[in-house]
Computed example of a mutant assay.
Amino acid sequence: MKEVRSDQRRPASETPVPRSGVQRSVPRSVIPASAPVTEGTLFGPSGAAFEVRPSDPLLGNIELDAVLANVPEFYAMKGMFFNALTSQLGERFAQVAPTLSSTPRGGAYLPFSDYPLRDFLRLYDAAARLSHPNRSSREAYRRVARQQLTAFAESALGRITMHLATDPGAALMRYTGSLGALMKGPSARARQLGASEVQIELLGYRGVLEYPLGNFEALVMGYGARPTIAVDVRGADALQFVVSW
């Protein structure tokens, strides 16, 4: 069994269950993918779980202010992801810029410099609503997250990572292993459960679960496969994904 980590932390307990290895503290039906997110927390009730496929729409809207309130100041992302969003926003970037804490001259971010995650989320929210005005914000976030993977794939690190990955499992393992170089704050680890199944855990994660969900979907779909992703919310900042295809 392969394993890659960005640090050595482990959850307090892991209880295996059949097939996927996902620990489900409550039935999946408690919070289906279509359940609206209207609470102040990022992900809804701790312990919630659901399973989703790319064709399953996510319903419900996210309160951006509630998300931002839970993001520490030192959390950051690389500029390459910001540039992808500013390109989507075009002239609309000027409307979002006054809300940002760190605005680069001309709106051009340095690809491998760190910028506040709070600023990223403001741009991400604006790009999602602009690009998908007739969809729920949850579904819009997810769809923009799929597009964000292109920014990584076009970077020097991304080209190397994707060149070495010959199938969805290898891509998921390598991408998760590189998250420490792409984001400051959260940690990640992944392990391959089978030929077509990978378990990914995010610890210390602050943001919206639709972002990694969309990333993982895009990775698998990039190889012509159709993913099914089981999501477990283990706490306010702990997520587990089991990706199968």
Rank of each mutant, 00 (worst) to 15 (best):
E3Q: 12
D7H: 12
D7L: 06
Q8L: 12
R10Y: 04
S13D: 11
S13Y: 15
S13P: 05
E14V: 09
S20H: 06
V22H: 02
R24K: 13
S25P: 00
V26P: 04
P27F: 09
R28Q: 13
S29R: 12
V30W: 15
V30D: 10
V30F: 14
P32Q: 04
A33S: 09
A33V: 11
S34K: 08
P36G: 01
P36A: 09
V37D: 13
T38Y: 11
L42R: 13
S46W: 14
G47K: 07
A49C: 14
A49Y: 03
E51P: 00
S55K: 15
D56G: 06
P57Y: 04
L59H: 11
G60M: 03
N61T: 12
I62C: 07
E63D: 14
E63L: 07
D65F: 10
L68R: 03
A69F: 06
F74W: 09
Y75W: 12
M77P: 00
M77F: 12
K78G: 03
K78Q: 15
M80V: 02
A84F: 12
L85D: 01
T86R: 03
T86Q: 03
L89S: 05
L89H: 06
E91G: 10
R92H: 13
R92G: 09
R92A: 15
F93V: 06
F93R: 06
A94R: 13
V96D: 01
V96R: 01
P98M: 02
T99A: 15
L100T: 06
S101Y: 13
S102C: 13
T103Y: 00
T103I: 07
A108C: 07
D114Q: 10
F120T: 00
L121G: 04
L123I: 05
L123H: 00
D125E: 14
A126E: 07
A127M: 07
A127L: 05
A128M: 08
A128S: 15
A128D: 09
L130R: 08
S131P: 11
H132E: 05
N134R: 10
N134Y: 07
A140N: 10
R143P: 03
R143D: 13
V144Q: 01
V144Y: 01
A145M: 02
A145Y: 01
A145G: 03
Q147N: 11
Q147T: 08
A151N: 00
A153E: 13
E154P: 05
A156F: 08
R159G: 14
H163P: 00
T166W: 05
T166L: 13
D167P: 04
P168A: 02
G169W: 02
A171R: 00
G177M: 02
G177H: 01
S178Y: 00
G180P: 01
M183V: 08
K184G: 05
G185A: 04
P186S: 07
A188F: 15
R189F: 15
R189H: 15
R189T: 06
R189A: 10
A190T: 04
Q192L: 11
L193Y: 00
G194A: 13
V198P: 10
Q199I: 00
Q199K: 12
E201M: 09
E201C: 08
L202A: 02
R206L: 09
E210G: 02
G214S: 08
F216Q: 03
A218T: 05
G222A: 07
Y223A: 09
Y223H: 12
G224H: 10
P227R: 01
T228G: 13
T228F: 03
I229H: 02
D232R: 12
A238C: 14
A238W: 14
L239Q: 09
L239K: 04
Q240Y: 08
V242P: 14
S244K: 08
W245R: 01
